[in-house]
Design a protein around this nucleic acid. Structure first.
Lengths: 251, 251
DNA sequence: ATGAATGTTCCGGAGAATAAAACAAGTCCA
DNA sequence: TGGACTTGTTTTATTCTCCGGAACATTCAT
């Protein structure tokens, strides 16, 4: 499908982002520390960082370099691209408060699930993180909105790697699971991403029925009994998804 | 103070971010639309975008290009650099809920105030935005923690541009205002950034008394009467700031 | 089917990024 | 106090790659 773009392109830009990513991984690195962690030369790093500091994307403090808040400006644009994303933020918080469990709003990008909003104990830390769609409740809620051809393309592109013993790795099993999800209107994650963790999710639509993403609540198996997972949570999630749609209709 | 870094640097990287910024401003541009909005050539844009798509920082849909959620990964690192930032998130939401007004957590970077967390009607849209320190309650709360020399450097670097008629533009007046802020322990914004908008803010410290940022609540003058601004809100904000410190002490 | 518009590829040349080495500025330790 | 070491900054020659123009491919509308 995609043309091979490895040769095409700007290697300088690749270098810049290599540096930025290592900086993001481990904040507060000095130039020499960066030389050890990358394949880039000292003077090159110096020049790249100078540019990035000048542009405001990197901040220097006491000789150590940090990724700056300039990135917030850009990422927030992406995060508010669709008003539905913003509406979902509040609903995630409400869900978290009401259930006292972790909640999230997930969107698909490049065949991965990306956390756009998150409520929970380690709140914040998950935002922006990418997870395989087939091992998440929210991911399955999203996949259940696609037709089989699209799902086949997804499987073809990224595969069905297992995260736990429960992860669905067989395509046919996934098709069946998605069909079940379509029928009942909510998706369940039964320790498929992390052992000890169950989750429930529903797809979220705009007023014109475009898929926006998925709302999910998840927590430990000890509290996520069958009745809670299959009765109370689906209704709660449907309500919130509906409220998002209504919010969008009147804005 | 800073060496002139205009000549030094990587112009290719500048070009990349020029494209990214125009993309962030106006999402979903095509290549030809980008040629009109920038000084960059069609084939060059094509090559840059190919690279960025390959790296995952830009997403292409139906021939239009969008900034991708990859940026969330980087910006969240910055946003969670200090655990206090994460702790502040919840407090901002609580403040917003309890007062039913807008609330925010602001941090200083490059002599500007950056919204790290935000609660309010248009929630989300302000995150990552940068504002002049001297025209915000939160900004003045932060400045009040600096000594006069540091404030002088700030004035020297960015000046005291007015946003409204009430903005403090005289250095001496600012010094006096900051002294008053220090004495009473909270800062007030009296339509200094936007007419019709008043705000209150307090500095937030870590357990070792390092300045973290500032918590603020703001809203229309109609609701922000003197007693509310000078009595109820300061106490509320002090409480939340204290809770952040306590959270940090036990983590 | 024809033409316009946009995206993609190709190519030669200019210019910029690169790496190495020299230089400067601290820092540590004897 | 002084000298060896580390780290950051600057310089320079050379190579490499980024760039822009133009050709080519593709899509879309008429």
């Amino acid at each position: 499908m995609s043309t091979d773009r490895d040769d095409v392109g700007v290697s300088t830009t690749r270098k810049t982002f290599e540096l930025l990513e290592t900086l993001a991984d481990e904040d507060g690195l000095t130039i020499t520390e960066l030389t050890k962690r990358t394949t880039v030369t000292k003077s090159t790093i110096y020049r790249h960082l100078s540019t990035l500091v000048d542009l405001g994307y990197v901040v220097e403090r006491d000789g150590a370099y940090f990724v700056g808040f300039r990135f917030l400006e850009i990422s927030e644009q992406a995060r508010n691209r669709r008003t539905g994303y913003t509406a979902a933020k509040r609903k995630v918080f409400e869900l978290g408060q009401e259930t006292d469990e972790r909640a999230g709003f997930i969107v698909e990008e490049k065949y991965e699930g990306v956390y756009i909003h998150r409520y929970g104990s380690l709140s914040g830390t998950m935002i922006g993180k990418r997870r395989p769609l087939h091992s998440l409740a929210a991911g399955k809620a999203i996949l259940s909105e696609w037709d089989d051809d699209a799902v086949a393309e997804f499987i073809d592109a990224v595969g069905l790697d297992p995260s736990t013993d429960n992860t669905i790795t067989d395509p046919d099993e996934l098709y069946a699971e998605l069909e079940k999800t379509r029928e009942r209107g909510y998706a369940v994650n039964n320790e498929e991403h992390m052992s000890g963790l169950r989750g429930v999710a529903v797809p979220v639509h705009t007023p014109d029925e475009t898929l926006l993403g998925a709302l999910s609540v998840f927590g430990p198996t000890s509290r996520f009994k069958d009745e809670y997972v299959h009765e109370e949570l689906p209704h709660r999630l449907w309500d919130k998804a509906g409220e998002i749609k209504v919010t969008l209709a009147y804005s």
